[in-house]
Write a protein that binds this DNA or RNA. Structure first.
Lengths: 140, 140
DNA sequence: ACATTACATGCATGCAAGCGCATGTAAGCA
DNA sequence: TGCTTACATGCGCTTGCATGCATGTAATGT
């Protein structure tokens, strides 16, 4: 069992809270590229924070092809009180607006899914190979 | 309003959780010396952690003479969900035992109160002047 | 006035964590 | 087989925080 202080530490970061709130909102597994688009954050950053959450048991992941679906441990009785607080505690105005933007961006991104599965990957600007190619072209 | 991540950060420390759990248990204002004795921690450490909690609004303090009574914001609707989780989430065995020891030590310490007020201060070993005197005597 | 006491805090240090960059890995596709 | 893509991670840097020591401050008692 994870120490309570570790759980709090995992949630003591606004970026990770944005991630968690999106999962509480969508109530379904999400893949990294969807989170990257919804949060408008660099891919490595999202992956790192997901790893931090997973290390405490608050999240888990499963790969399906190249896509990695992450999901919140929303039903675990160990954490239910925690999610209840995160989901219901009042937010300041700025955070509230941020949350709404994230939710809308996620909604839009999820509409691209086909048969409930993610079918498009990272936005080109977040893609490594694409950036490399652009770099070469810029030099030429 | 304090950011949620700051609240989690404040609670992301086992020592501060020990303090908070003692307040949830005793449900009354406590002074620093009582916490020092109950937790068997150096005085400066307790003061620091209390300051950290107070900085987030989770605690407040009031001086009465030389004694400083600290109290948990247990009734604030802003934090009620948080306290509920801290007070009810399961603990691992070691933490549970630690908590019971802390509670018993606090109970013993509180029995020394007179008319609900603290009347004895720090244990000599935690007292600065006493340590100084002992140091001089040791040199002689 | 002075010493004592309850509590707070400045300072130096060690350590953990977030960030940005680059690259590694594994899976799908041509 | 080789390229692209989705995702993960090693590395260096910087920042923040817990700790320990010592000392500061304000209130009390003699």
């Amino acid at each position: 069992m994870t120490e309570m202080s570790e759980l709090f530490r995992a949630l003591a970061d606004e970026t990770r809270l944005r991630i968690v709130r999106l999962f509480l909102y969508s109530a379904m597994p999400l893949c990294v590229c969807e989170l990257v688009d919804a949060l408008e954050l660099p891919q490595y950053k999202v992956s790192r924070h997901l790893a931090a959450l997973k290390a405490t048991g608050l999240m888990s992941a499963s790969k399906q092809g190249t896509w990695a679906y992450h999901r919140l441990e929303a039903d675990s009785p160990l954490f239910s009180g925690l999610w209840e607080y995160v989901g219901s505690a009042p937010l300041d105005e700025a955070t509230e607006q941020q949350l709404r933007r994230d939710q809308q961006a996620l909604d839009a991104r999820l509409r691209i899914r086909e048969n409930g599965a993610c079918v498009v990957g990272l936005t080109p600007s977040n893609n490594f190979a694409t950036r490399e190619k652009q770099e070469k072209e810029r030099i030429v």
